[in-house]
Each structure stands twice: as C-alpha cells, then as structure tokens.
Write a protein that binds this DNA or RNA. Structure first.
Length: 422
DNA sequence: TCTGGGGTCCTAGGACCC
DNA sequence: TCTGGGGTCCTAGGACCC
C-alpha cells in the first residue's frame, strides 16, 4: 500500500509561512529570471492563470487583481522541503522523496489498521506536518504509485485533504471521471494520441488492449495500464539511485554578444556544477557545453550548438572543469549572434570513492582537492560567491535579475525573520 | 521589453563484434 | 549464382516529471 504526500502549491505555501499577509490573496511564484509562473495560490488559479505561463503575458491581469508575484527563493523552499520530509520520516520508515514537494510512503507496515485506520493515520500525519512546518499537504492512499497519484488528485478537492482509492467500486468511479491526461506520466501530447484511439479516461486506458497500448506508448504505457488495474509495477525507491547527469544553465539577464562575456558565464556555470558535484560526492567523466540564441525572437538570427568531451580522469575540480568548459565554448561560439542562454552539462557521474584511474593520465591532484575544500568551506560559511574564480567575472553583467525575492529566512543569519513585539 | 531549470527513462538505428 | 545470425554498445531524439 502506498501514499502520495503532495504539498499544496508548495512555493506559495513556503512564502505564506513567513508572510501571513499573503494569506487569502492571489500569489504567484516565478521561475528563474522571473520568466514563467511556476506556482499559484488557489486564488491565482481562480483567476485562470495557467501553470508554466510566461509571466509577462499575465502581469497586467495579476496587477489589476491585486496579486503578488515573487521571484523564486529556492534556498528557502529546499530547506522547508527538508523539514516536511523530516516530519514524515519520523512517522513512516519507508519514504521515497520524489521531488521538492512530493513523496511516496510505503504503508505496507500499517495494513492492520484497515482502510478507515489508514485514513485516520494519514489525516493525523497531515495535521502533524501542518503544525510543525506550516505547510498544507494532500495525501492519496492506494495500492500502487499511479493509483495513489490519482487518489491525491481526489484528496486535493476534498475538505479533509486525504483520500483513498482502495476499494474497487470507488476506484472504478474515480477512474471513469479521470481524464487520460491527468494520469501521472501522460502529457497533453500522449493524451491526444490516446484519444485518437478512443481512449479518453483512465478507466478506458485500464481496460484497453495491451498490444494497442504498447504500440502507442511502449513499455511505459503497459506498466501504467497494469498499475491502473491495481498491479504494482513501480517499486518504492527509499534509497535514491545514483545520479547520472547534471546540468547547470541560466538564461542571461541581458543578451550576450561577446566571447569574453560568454567565457565568464560558462566559467560561472562550470564552477557551480563542480561545487554541486563535490557537495554530492560525485565526479564527472564527460563535460558538455551548449549555447543558444532566443528562440522566441524569430526575427533574430538564430544559432544554437553544443559539444562534449571526455575528460582524461573523472573530476570535480572547478579549475579543470572551467578549463575544459572554456575550450569547448570557444569552439562553438560564433560572432554576430545575440545569445540568450548557455550551460554546462556533466555526464557519466560516479561516486568519489569509485573513480577508475587511467594508467597514462595524471593522478588525482591532491593539491587541487585541498584548495576546493577551502573554497567550499568559505562559501558555505559566508555565503555562496564569497570566493570564486576570476574567470567567472567581477561585474557579471549577463547575470539574471531576481528583484522580487523574499528573504532566505531559514538559511541566512542576516535574513532571519524580524518580529516586533509591543 | 519580458517565455525556467533540472532531471529520468525508453527506443530506434548505426557501428561493430564473432 | 549464392551474401547469416546473433549479439553489444553508443547516441540522438522523444517523451515525461516537478
């Protein structure tokens, strides 16, 4: 038995914990560069603001409605996510953290409670999370992951915030009313293809012909179909599988046209990627870079390209990764374009304690490792960016703007919430 | 004017091996 | 004249998730 816990409009909820004046008002949280709307309060959803929409298209409508738009504050959201999962782990031993705001619980150890008992348990769990963190959640209970996602769908519309899809009759009723695009793993595109074959609801996919489903969606679709039938095909992954790839990229705050600026930006991303590798105790054996112009400006000259190289030895050294990233970007940079974005990707990641050395390549540079450790320590203690490489640039004019970000209340001493008492 | 960032998995096809 | 069968590995592209 599984439960899916999903934080309600998570980023907005995080903001509301520290600024209760946002309660009851339409609030949206924006993506990096204040580009897209990535979280909406129920009041904002009621205004008809779609998920993922470009902010500039709805800016006026939001302003007229007295809505509040905030830049994203990932440091705060990440920390709040940690706190929510801490509460859940204190009550349920097997938890799979699926994303920043969603996790699966393995409830197989609680079956003796019965359906009503499971509902009661989850309602109390929900109350506990709310009390300890201030974050409201919805919980869906069912026999497998796909059905618990569907149950969560129902939970969000219920008063209690908890719903189960355990009994067959209930399951049948809900799946008959669940559009095929609302199933976990089916997007608009696949939804359209399924609909063209007469499959429009979750119940119809559940009852569809297996070879037809395989033909349309491949093995992924067949697994989905079995999950809808109540068979569990997707196991709970309490231990996260090792990460395989990593990307660090950003749109520019203003267009980049010169090689010098591009070098700065790519060095910055490479350094960020390297620090992320070290934090996760990983090394990379392949480095890639990419750059692109603004595809939303069809009148501009368009160009995008990417390239990747195998590194002589797997590494997480900022110096080494910056050097290769700059070499790579030089080889694909073309004059005469207005660039919108660039980034670094690292592939073939491996754990730091399992690096295959090359007989003919230089050994891991211990001097470099000590230097990186000092840089990481300083940046952790005094804030990221305290110590960085000169090649990342000083002014960094290409950097994006985040003008509407709330304070990082829980992770920075100088941004702690101030409470004034009479 | 302004359109995110970071991931995963699967598949088909090509290159290559014996 | 007749031109196999059975593999593996890699990569690009497509699909999805939050």
């Amino acid at each position: 038995m599984f439960a899916l816990v999903d934080c309600n409009c998570f980023y907005v909820s995080c903001e509301r914990v520290f600024d209760p004046s946002l309660e009851g008002k339409p609030v949206v949280v924006l993506s990096n560069n204040d580009g897209c709307i990535v979280a909406r309060s129920p009041e904002a959803k009621a205004l008809g603001i779609p998920m993922g929409a470009p902010y500039h298209k709805y800016k006026h409508q939001l302003q007229n409605a007295g809505a509040i738009a905030l830049s994203s504050n990932y440091e705060l959201y990440g920390d709040m996510s940690h706190r929510v999962y801490g509460v859940l782990l204190s009550s349920v031993p097997e938890v799979e953290i699926y994303s920043i705001d969603e996790c699966f619980l393995d409830l197989s150890g609680f079956m003796h409670l019965g359906t009503d008992g499971l509902m009661d348990f989850c309602m109390r769990l929900r109350q506990k999370v709310l009390k300890y963190t201030g974050i409201p959640t919805g919980i869906g209970i069912a026999k497998n992951k796909v059905l618990s996602k569907a149950a969560n769908h129902v939970a969000k519309q219920s008063v209690s915030g908890v719903a189960e899809l355990i009994t067959d009759e209930l399951c049948d009723r809900v799946l008959n009313n669940l559009a095929v695009e609302d199933i976990w793993g089916i997007n608009k595109r696949l939804g359209l293809r399924l609909r063209s074959h007469g499959i429009a609801t979750a119940a119809q996919l559940r009852d569809a012909n297996e070879s037809l489903v395989k033909q349309i969606m491949g093995i992924v679709g067949v697994r989905l179909m079995y999950e809808l039938r109540g068979v569990s095909c997707l196991p709970l992954e309490a231990i996260a599988p090792p990460q395989k790839n990593m990307v660090c990229s950003r749109s520019f705050g203003q267009p980049v046209t010169t090689m010098a600026q591009m070098h700065e930006a790519i060095a910055y991303h490479a350094a960020r990627a390297a620090a992320k590798l070290r934090h996760r105790e990983l090394r990379a054996s392949v480095l890639g870079v990419f750059l692109t112009t603004n595809r939303f400006q069809p009148n501009d000259l368009q160009y995008s390209n990417s390239i990747s190289v195998s590194l002589p030895t797997a590494t997480n050294s900022s110096q080494v990764l910056i050097r290769y990233a700059k070499l790579c970007i030089t080889s694909i940079f073309r004059e005469g374009f207005s660039y919108k974005k660039c980034g670094v990707s690292l592939n073939d990641l491996s754990s730091v304690d399992a690096v295959q050395l090359d007989l003919l390549s230089p050994a891991v540079d211990c001097h470099d490792e000590k230097l990186m450790a000092v840089i990481d320590l300083l940046n952790r203690r005094y804030g990221s960016g305290t110590m960085r490489f000169a090649s990342e640039g000083i002014k960094q004019e290409w950097k994006m703007k985040t003008d509407m970000r709330s304070p990082r209340y829980t992770t920075r001493w100088d941004e702690l919430l101030v409470v004034k008492a009479n």
